[in-house]
Design a protein around this nucleic acid. Structure first.
Lengths: 290, 290
DNA sequence: TCTTTTCTGAAATCTTTTCTTCATATTCAT
DNA sequence: ATGAATATGAAGAAAAGATTTCAGAAAAGA
């Protein structure tokens, strides 16, 4: 029996010589479909090995656990280690800084947010959203909340270049009714709403829904109440080691959507961009770029 | 949303809109470390999600299982399938979409940007920047360009809560001279400038430098001409498969800086946030969030 | 604001699992 | 073959887990 076994499989193999007939039978059974076969109840494990439950209990004690639950917990950890992505962890992002530096911890959290959010992303929702936004027969309205207004603005800024009929509904809720007058059936309204969800944004969504607009919602994992009204919802993980939530994932998705819409509207967009270029030249707004 | 869910993850996502607050919290908890996190006892699952066991029982019934054991058995099958299939997932970001889908290509590019930018990041620059921004004896001015104005706004929004004396210099360049009157020696000016570099932003930087302000610059890998004037420069990679540049890396860095400044100014910030909280309560601006 | 509805978790109850005991079966040495 | 030592599983006790009930809390509606 060797001292330092890091897996249960090793533990079983190391003890192979001390096992009785029934125990060996059980051990083999566990190893055959390792480690998943040990995940059921003690009864199930015993049954699938063709031995009695006391045999299972005795074996796990023999190899060093206090009881079946402890054995199973160890097994679960192994499963977890097997499943979790090996390249995900232990990447230090800012090589100069130690792992515990905020830059590395924060980035790690953001990457995890991206991984998790995109893992859940429904691709049909994405495609349908881009299709709606690329349809120039529909007007597009963009609205954000207290914090997300920057994102809404960023999105608006790009969409405005890509296509016509894009409006940014600004924060002051008193002005909303005026915008609402313009929202027609089948127009598209893009709403950013993360916790803490704002009452006024919900009201706006309700009115837009009544007007027959298609609602596209960007929200967090806890879902804004607008989700019930939305045609397409993107739910993103936004948790970082900070008193604030992170908007990085949302911005990534926004940019991706912009890129996709652009390819869809390219003929029109190309022309718009060229015109814009001419105007920039005239106003000498930018420095010559080499 | 698709009807026939083949995994519990899909089942949870499909039902996302029908879930209550606690259920959603639980659902997220299960998905975070999916599928291993659902493998413990109902008590363990509930505890790790921070909800009660009845909530777990209710959720699994809601998504179509007869009870927790049945749910768990299904989960075990998935684990088994995942383990026995070595080339499982995690190669692509949005598992549902093919590698060549824009979501995966774009994300891949963004991650590469982050990796590259942070690899180059000088940690002393980062620390010094945060120190400057946390120093409330200095006023802080924030300015962005045509596209980066959203980022400047985002940064301003947070800094404004963290500390006093923060000003967002808005886009209209005619108004800039007025702001400049207020910039004193040793004040801090945070400038966002990516290609195409704007002439007016450069002029502003020059004037700020003359006034003796500390200049912090966020720019791209090709360096804005302002870099010559800046005390601290962050150069970030912003290339993505799109006609546009990506601001994701910049936003990540901005958020990280906000998080770090916050820990430095916490005593003051805490009070400011509490006061803000009271004001929100009074105005009922937000919905109650638990 | 007040009422109604919905949600949530503490506690009680019921179920299953795990562990222990012990009688019987098996093996091994002589 | 016989007895001693060991192994094994049936059965029941103990523990843990799962489910249900219900009252208080939160949200929605009026």
């Amino acid at each position: 029996m060797s001292e330092n076994a890091s897996t249960i499989a090793e533990l079983l193999q190391n003890n192979a010589d001390n096992l009785t007939r029934a125990e060996r039978q059980l051990s083999q059974s566990i190893l055959v479909n390792y480690p998943v076969s040990g995940l059921g109840s003690i009864t199930a494990v015993a049954k699938s090995a063709g031995v009695s439950t006391p045999t299972v209990a005795r074996l796990v004690k023999k190899i060093g656990f206090s009881g079946f639950p402890e054995f199973q917990a160890a097994l679960r950890n192994e499963v977890e280690a097997t499943i979790s992505d090996p390249i995900a962890k232990h990447d230090t992002w800012a090589g100069q800084a130690p792992d515990e530096h905020i830059v590395n911890k924060f980035t790690e959290a953001v990457i995890e947010n991206i991984r998790h959010s995109l893992g859940q992303l429904d691709i049909a929702t994405f495609d349908k959203t881009c299709e709606l936004l690329a349809d120039t027969s529909r007007s597009v309205f963009v609205v954000g909340g207290r914090i997300t207004r920057s994102l809404a603005d960023y999105f608006f800024l790009h969409m405005q270049v890509l296509r016509k009929d894009v409006t940014h509904i600004q924060a002051i809720s008193n002005a909303w009714p005026h915008y609402l007058l313009d929202i027609k059936k089948n127009d598209v309204i893009v709403i950013f709403d993360v916790r803490r969800y704002e009452t006024s944004t919900l009201r706006l969504a309700e009115m837009a829904a009544e007007a027959g607009a298609k609602i596209i919602l960007f929200t967090d994992q806890w879902h804004s109440p607008i989700a019930k009204l939305a045609d397409h919802t993107f739910s993103l993980k936004i948790v970082v080691p900070s008193a604030w939530d992170s908007s990085v994932t949302m911005m990534l998705l926004v940019e991706t959507i912009i890129a996709d819409v652009q390819t869809r509207t390219w003929p029109e967009t190309r022309q718009r961009m060229e015109e814009l270029e001419v105007m920039f030249d005239r106003t000498k707004f930018f420095r010559k770029f080499t």
